[in-house]
Design a protein around this nucleic acid. Sequence first.
DNA 1: CAGTGGTCTAGACCACAGT
DNA 2: CTGTGGTCTAGACCACTGA
Lengths: 238, 238
Amino acid sequence: MEEKSVPHYRRLYEQLRKGIVDGIYKEGDLLPSENELCALHNLTRPTVRKALDLLAHEGFIKKQQGLGSIVHKLPKGIGILSIAGTTTAIGKKNLKTTTVVRPRVQNWPSDFFFALSDEFKTVGCIYFERVRFVNDHPIFYEQTYLPNINLPRFTSRNLDNKSLFDLLRQNYQLEIKGGEQYLKAIEAVDEKICEYLNIRTGQPVLYLSRKLETNRINFSFFSFMYCNTSDFSLYGVF
Amino acid sequence: MEEKSVPHYRRLYEQLRKGIVDGIYKEGDLLPSENELCALHNLTRPTVRKALDLLAHEGFIKKQQGLGSIVHKLPKGIGILSIAGTTTAIGKKNLKTTTVVRPRVQNWPSDFFFALSDEFKTVGCIYFERVRFVNDHPIFYEQTYLPNINLPRFTSRNLDNKSLFDLLRQNYQLEIKGGEQYLKAIEAVDEKICEYLNIRTGQPVLYLSRKLETNRINFSFFSFMYCNTSDFSLYGVF
DNA sequence: CAGTGGTCTAGACCACAGT
DNA sequence: CTGTGGTCTAGACCACTGA
């Protein structure tokens, strides 16, 4: 009966989420009630509720006691503050990615922002830089550091127009489970930033420092992102 | 036996959270196991798990299958991106708040960023501005808009050094249940911003637009915050 | 009033970590 | 191996919404 080891609540979550982003459920619609979803999928209420809690947590629905689960409007900004990778977060918007520094093995910077384990320091890191375009405008300039552990052939992979999250999952069985992030508004002073994002020196950019945690124990990686927010906001729910 | 209508999982969550911020549980420590917590508090596992899920969701702990719930280090930045109000988010840091524009009834701005219901437009809003200091440095300049519905005497209240969330909860039974936010990096051009945050014209600031939803149906309010992030980052988990 | 989501119980089996 | 967290069942009672 079961095909894979994906939890039931996860399957239901993904199905409902797809229904919302595809427009089958529209803004303001009510999702089927919890009891209806139980009957439809042969699940019990706690399982159904877990799927709905995930959707509510990510802002796709709002629950209202006595009424139901209301489909929320899709956000105006770019939902990159949650766990979704950039690719999924932006959705149908025209997104392109180019690699400006191909993956290479090097040492960690001496003044690295996040704490590094001794093992990480010893093995060094895989480093690369990418620029992401939304509607053909450069919006994100991202520097990524991966610990150089059990990532065979990574440096020879092509990252253009690919989701790093998908690549890690499909080739290395790495799932991103969460992380932490620090945000600042800074002036674009580095000329590479200005060049890649096509902005003038001194223009404000949003600087995002992230630690991303995976299902492999003690395996995290890091990303530092410069965002041109003159046309797009970053969006999040809480 | 029961004293109030606070859910059990919520009580346990607050107790454990307090244990972490007060340092009773230190970074890297294991919390009591789920079964131990069940026995200690006479709860069942789903209830205990809900409390732990809340803690994990807010970044206080990391769960690891087969091991336990590990207390996470407290963040370096200001955790304002989650549901916590500024006051609770900053915790023990020296925080002061001054009111620069006292609450007053007025119309909504014509170009308001968020969509407003007809009822909201009709009744107008209560508007005020505050500046928040961390370690005696002005860090946040916040403009708040509340719908002018069932908030008796609000305009005569003193907001200095008070948590708006607490004031709303204690005086109006309003609980903040969630919300959405949009972030941008902008130049400080408005002279009020520069004055209140004590920065020069053109310096980058982080601009945060938030809609905050409450337990009263169809009652949301709005906050627009300018943050000087030169010394502090905004922190969040996902 | 009936139906909704919110909370809770008392079990069960599984996958994974450390010994 | 034991103990951990991860998933799931099959019920129960409550508070709230809308008719």
